[in-house]
Amino acid sequence: MLSESYVEIHQHQHQSSISLYTLRYANSNDNWTIQAIFRDHVKYDFSERLIFTGVQKEPCAILYELKLNEYGMYRIRISQKRTKVSYHYDENKVRQLIDNQSHQFLFDVHFEPNTFVFSPPGRNE
């Protein structure tokens, strides 16, 4: 009986949403979007929540949040839509959502240069 009710609570908690937070240093109008990619290429965009403005044109810290109802493994991507294709850089690791933690802070997001010649935009921490 005890274990059954535990499972119920556990599942119930899994249905509430999770917030992911991350930071990026960049110009606030550079049109790059941070995304979380789940299996089957399901993508969710992070939203800008707070911009720590610097001196004019100086890159500034931007704080992002993504509210999720998805669970499991994911990868963080930074992506920019162009007229025909979208450019993107991925983190070189797969992340796992922490169980029962409705607010999760990503401290060490780092995008890898990929097939594109250029390095990823902005600075990540």
Binding site: Y21, L23, R49, L50, F52, A61, L63, F105, F107, E125
Partner: peptide, 8 residues
């Protein structure tokens, strides 16, 4: 990040 997240 400690400052930015806390201030947010």
């Amino acid at each position: 990040a400690l400052c930015y997240f806390t201030y947010y």
